[in-house]
């Protein structure tokens, strides 16, 4: 009986760890892609309509995924309530369930803290620079995927071996 309980715990622990890691990785990648896409929309809307910042963020939020849309909507709301840019930027990133690498989060914070302060050319440069930083984070994530898969394969082998020994 004790063997079965041990085997169950090993399976649960190893499986839970693997699934958790994988879920976090995919969530992170999905959010990175979502923000990167949102920046592209933001850039198009900005150049085409020159909308004021809160409206620009709302229009972009309508075409973005849930978490990203939440950040943009919160940012627009806080600006309209009179919060200074830096405070609005920090608060909107904090209030939403973000699962981003630190570098990407810093890039977004810097972008939101400075948006709306420059002419069109300056805004375009700011958005492009942030987009590059997000893309670099995506590439890093993709590069980490292979060793991660190897690690999980090793974990699966070890778990299998442990089970076999336990059940012998």
């Amino acid at each position: 009986m004790i063997k079965w309980i041990g085997a169950g715990l090993i399976l649960l622990g190893a499986g839970g760890f693997g699934v958790g890691k994988a879920a976090k990785f995919y969530r992170q990648m999905r959010q990175l892609h979502s923000f990167s896409n949102a920046l592209e929309i933001l850039k198009c809307e900005l150049n085409y309509t020159l909308l004021p910042l809160p409206e620009l963020c709302r229009v972009t939020a309508e075409r973005s995924e849930r978490v990203c849309a939440g950040v943009l909507r919160d940012y627009a709301r806080l600006l309209e309530q009179g919060s200074p840019r830096k405070m609005a930027a920090a608060a909107c990133l904090e209030n939403n369930a973000l699962c981003l690498p630190e570098e990407a989060q810093t890039a977004l914070l810097e972008m939101l803290s400075s948006m709306g302060r420059y002419d069109l050319d300056g805004e375009n440069r700011l958005l492009s620079r942030t987009q590059l930083r997000l893309e670099a984070a995506i590439r890093t994530g993709e590069a980490e995927k292979r060793p991660m898969v190897k690690g999980y394969a090793a974990l699966a082998l070890c778990t299998g071996a442990a089970l076999a020994i336990l059940l012998m």
Partner: peptide
């Protein structure tokens, strides 16, 4: 900031 819609570009 309020008058320009928080956006110098616009």
């Amino acid at each position: 900031a309020s008058a320009t819609g928080h956006a110098v570009y616009s």
